[in-house]
Design a protein around this nucleic acid. Structure first.
Lengths: 204, 204
DNA sequence: TGAACTGGTGAGCGACCGTTAACCGAACGG
DNA sequence: CCGTTCGGTTAACGGTCGCTCACCAGTTCA
């Protein structure tokens, strides 16, 4: 898939050998296939044989890349949560006003949801299938992301209680995250519709 | 749970004998327990033994009330979809204007989501676990419900394309259906917040 | 009262699935 | 160039789970 040739393998250090590069590629393919399969059928209804097959290998080869089936799910969800939190923080840090920060958060989240519909689906589908530390990690990252939104909202609406603003933030996520359910391929104008709806809902 | 005593069993005809009444009660208890368990852990991760145990019976007794595990899920989802569609139609039929119809739909859906958080969770969690006719039935009912909303929206915004209005309706459902994720017991003011957000989003 | 019915139980079957084990061949590194 | 590493394979184990079977006890009803 990647158009990068071979020589030097400049990109990231630590991936000197061809084996390392092949392994990283396999791992990425597994994560991609897993996100799609989990989104389509749900985590518990995807077997490791199917998962491996979808990535070109078969069966227990997955254990050469992940410690368990749950670890695959954890990698997807933790990665997504971290990306969301990181991106959200960058948006807020670069905004010149609270209103601009909110608009930026909305635009960022809409872009993420449209570009990663599979991951969104997995996130509010199979988070319960995660147990132990991974679950806690994801929940913590998500809570921090919510608080990021609530902080901005609190500055814009100082009269509202934080618990009410949290409800507003969750409702806004639900609105934006509805794309995987509606846009079964179509609706290219979804971005602007969702952005305007989200901003109007938050301002109501 | 029901405070009704016994004699006569007036309510619905066809439930003359005590056994019939007991059976109906068991069935209802099973559906209640199933909705809660499926909402908490997801359909595939609830065993029939657990399901039975949660309703006071144990194990394969479920098969005296439902043909299969899927049939339990189907009963929950079909019932919910029918109730939603029926209620929505009643709201629209009784409204004196398109704007009132939309406001009524929003209020109705918010009430439903707040009163049946478990079922909402199951609906956008385990619908994929349904197969065959049941799945098709639920999808058809849901599509009709969406079209009910889109019809009202189309009258209020004749300039918009139906596909765009469908995106709006889905986004609105996502917003309202966010309650099960956010209100983990608290947020009693959620009703008015969600209603105003939904209406603002739809009008944007 | 006694035969038929029926909802419940416990044991058990068959399939599936996550995971481990034993082993193989190519790439790696001194 | 040779010993090691490592990603891959197939085979198999252990456990779970949906579902069926044989059977039992309390209702129902003629």
């Amino acid at each position: 898939m990647t158009a990068t040739t071979d020589a030097r393998a400049g990109a990231s250090p630590g991936l000197a050998t061809a084996r390392d590069r092949a392994k990283a590629e396999r791992r990425a393919a597994l994560l991609r296939a897993a996100a799609q399969l989990f989104a389509e059928r749900g985590f518990p209804r995807v077997s490791l044989d199917e998962l491996g097959a979808a990535a070109g290998v078969s069966g227990p080869a997955v254990y050469k890349h992940f410690a368990s089936k749950q670890a695959v799910l954890a990698a997807i969800l933790v990665g997504a949560s971290e990306g969301l939190l990181e991106g959200g923080r960058a948006v807020v840090a670069g905004a010149t006003s609270d209103a601009a920060a909110l608009a930026g958060l909305v635009a960022f989240h809409v872009d993420f949801a449209l570009a990663n519909a599979d991951i969104i689906r997995v996130q509010d589908h199979d988070l319960d299938s995660l147990a132990g530390d991974d679950r806690h990690t994801v929940r913590t990252l998500q809570r921090e992301y919510v608080e990021l939104w609530v902080d901005v909202l609190a500055r814009l609406r100082p009269a509202d209680a934080r618990v009410a603003l949290r409800t507003r933030a969750h409702a806004c996520f639900g609105l934006i995250n509805s794309t995987p359910h509606s846009s079964r391929g179509g609706a290219r104008a979804a971005r602007s519709i969702l952005e305007s709806m989200a901003l109007a809902a938050l301002a109501a």
